[in-house]
């Protein structure tokens, strides 16, 4: 399989503010690619360029084998773009919104009707087709927002932070939809600042910060390359963790403590022995797999989210 997206040396500025500098990555056909980064990192700008909404200052972009600059009209026919905000007519029903956006995407007549029924089923809102969008919850609106980009069966779907501020039920629906798209061979470009979403959905990812890609590749590859294993210990209330001289720094985490280390087995053994000697009550002691959170921390020195 080839690449659905190829980006090289992409740069974009707004006046004297640089949004993207020398961005480059590739997205495999049929994969789900995560674009991970904090707010203002350049994710939306990248997605708007790929959707043809913004023109880059420089760089080469190929989407579905077509040159973005020269063959934009043909690209538009094959992509579905889901903006970060709810871009729907609140006064119209879900079905009327989908009819309108479907027609704008070139789907008409019986095919459009059947596609509307299909995508409403897909987003779990078939029974609310005739209701005005303004009567929907935030999560339901987000689902219709996505559905409006699927009607013309795009080969590439670009989702710009589609789960911001929604309920768990809607989030699960969206996750299932994305997994369904992947099963159907659709390439998904997914931007988010939620690391757990990338871990749950994406095959590959690029970590973007201050307009630069600071790491990209397969999820496991990035975790192996940049992530550090850790050992987590949780004791009974009021007990303190034994010191581990020369094995690493102990940091509080959740209801226990953690030690980031390249030798997790050694730390685990030392901590287990110390707890046994001091007769401490161990509630949890385990090796923790490297996470994107630790990757991001190690690469940028900051956490991804403030919350």
């Amino acid at each position: 399989m080839g690449n659905a997206i190829e980006i090289e040396g992409l740069a974009k500025s707004y006046g004297d503010k640089t949004a993207l500098r020398d961005i480059g990555f590739a997205v495999r056909e049929g994969s789900c690619f995560g674009l991970l980064g904090p707010n203002g990192a350049g994710k939306s700008t990248t997605m708007k360029i790929l959707s043809g909404l913004l023109e880059p200052d420089s760089g080469r972009v190929r989407v579905l084998g077509l040159d973005l600059k020269r063959e934009h009209a043909r690209i538009r026919e094959q992509i579905g773009y889901v903006p970060q905000g709810i871009a729907l007519y609140e006064k119209l029903s879900a079905a009327d919104n989908l009819t309108f956006f479907g027609e704008m995407s070139g789907v008409r007549g019986k095919e459009l009707k059947s596609r509307i029924a299909e995508v409403l089923e897909q987003v779990g809102l078939a029974d609310r087709a005739k209701d005005q969008v303004e009567s929907f919850s935030g999560g339901m609106k987000r689902r219709i927002n996505i559905a409006a980009a699927l009607l013309h069966r795009p080969k590439l779907i670009i989702l710009d932070e589609p789960t911001v501020g929604i309920d768990p039920q809607s989030r699960n629906h969206i996750f299932e939809m994305i997994r369904g798209m992947k099963r159907d061979g659709v390439t998904v470009l997914y931007s988010t600042h939620y690391m757990e979403e990338v871990e749950a959905l994406c095959d590959d990812l690029a970590i973007i910060d201050s307009g630069r890609v600071i790491a990209h590749g397969g999820l496991n590859e990035i975790l192996d390359r940049f992530g550090t294993s850790a050992v987590y210990l949780e004791l009974a209330a009021g007990q303190q963790p034994p010191e581990l001289p020369g094995l690493g720094e102990i940091r509080p985490k959740d209801r226990g403590w953690t030690v980031e280390t390249a030798k997790p087995l050694e730390v685990l053994s030392a901590w287990a022995e110390a707890c046994r000697r001091q007769q401490l009550t161990v509630k949890q002691l385990e090796i923790v797999r490297p996470s994107l959170e630790t990757v991001f921390l190690s690469l940028t020195g900051t956490t991804l989210r403030d919350d």
Binding site: E77, I86, Y89
Partner: peptide, 13 residues
């Protein structure tokens, strides 16, 4: 302001 104009620009319109 709702982003609909921009969204429509990604369609065939």
């Amino acid at each position: 302001t709702a982003g609909i104009t921009a969204r429509l620009q990604t369609t065939r319109m």
